[in-house]
C-alpha cells in the first residue's frame, strides 16, 4: 500500500483536487495540448491514470512533474473539469516534502531560492535569488567548467547597463507578517 503518513496516496491527491479526477477517460486532450510534453517521461493523461492506480513512486520520481510549466492548458481544456495542473502541484508538494532527490533536482532548488528570497525580504530580489540558485544547484560550478558563465555574464551586463537589474534588495514593511506566514505553512504539509 502506498501511504503518505497514515493516508493512502491517491486519497491525499483526491482530497486536494476533487473527485473529478475519477472521471478521467483517457481522451489524451491534456497530453495533446501540453506545450512541454516533448520533455516529459510520462504524459499528463498517464500521470492521472497512475495516481488513480495509487502508483506513488512512479509519479513522484517522474520528470514530468518538474518540467510541467503550470500553464494550465490541460486544466482549461479537460472535458471532465479535472484540475490537472493542480494535480501536478500536489505531486510536486508531496515530492518536496518526501526529502528525496527529485528527477529534475534544479527545479525544486529554484523554488526554494525563490521562496527564501520572499521569506527574507518580503519580495523577490532577482539578483539574490539567482545567486542562491546558481550556487545551490551546482550550476555555477558547471558553468565555470564549461565556460558557459561568459554567456550569463554577457547577458547580465546587458541587463545591468539597461537598468534592468536592481542591485539593492527591496524594502518591504511587511517582512514580519510574511515570515509568520512561512512559519504557519510548515504546519500545513500534506504528510
Amino acid at each position: 500500500m502506498e501511504l503518505i503518513g497514515d493516508k493512502n496516496f491517491r486519497d491525499v491527491v483526491v482530497d486536494a483536487v476533487g473527485e473529478e479526477i475519477f472521471t478521467c477517460y483517457q481522451c489524451y486532450k491534456c497530453s495533446a495540448g501540453c506545450p512541454v510534453s516533448f520533455a516529459m517521461d510520462m504524459l499528463p493523461h498517464q500521470v492521472i491514470r497512475s495516481v488513480l492506480f495509487n502508483q506513488k513512486e512512479r509519479v513522484l520520481s517522474s520528470r514530468t512533474i518538474w518540467v510541467c510549466a503550470a500553464c494550465e492548458t490541460c486544466t482549461t481544456r479537460c472535458p471532465n473539469e479535472i484540475e490537472i495542473a493542480k494535480v501536478m502541484d500536489v505531486l510536486r508538494q508531496i515530492q518536496q516534502e518526501s526529502g528525496k532527490q527529485a528527477k529534475e533536482p534544479k527545479v525544486p532548488i529554484f523554488h526554494k531560492a525563490f521562496l527564501d528570497s520572499i521569506k527574507k525580504t518580503g519580495r523577490v530580489h532577482e539578483l539574490t535569488m539567482i545567486r542562491n540558485y546558481t550556487q545551490k544547484s551546482g550550476e555555477l560550478r558547471e558553468k565555470l567548467k564549461t565556460g558557459e558563465w561568459k554567456n550569463d555574464v554577457r547577458l547580465g551586463m546587458k541587463m545591468f547597463l539597461r537598468g534592468k537589474l536592481k542591485v539593492m534588495p527591496p524594502k518591504c514593511g511587511g517582512v514580519k507578517e510574511v515570515k509568520k506566514i512561512f512559519e504557519q505553512a510548515k504546519e500545513h504539509k500534506k504528510a
Binding site: A70, D89, H111, L115, G122, C172, I181, A185
Partner: peptide, 20 residues
Amino acid sequence: DWSCCGASSAHSTNEFLSVA
C-alpha cells in the same frame, strides 16, 4: 507594504503558502 504573491514557487511547494 505589499509582498510577493509567491508565484509558481509557492503553489509548487506548499498549498497554504500559495493562498496565504
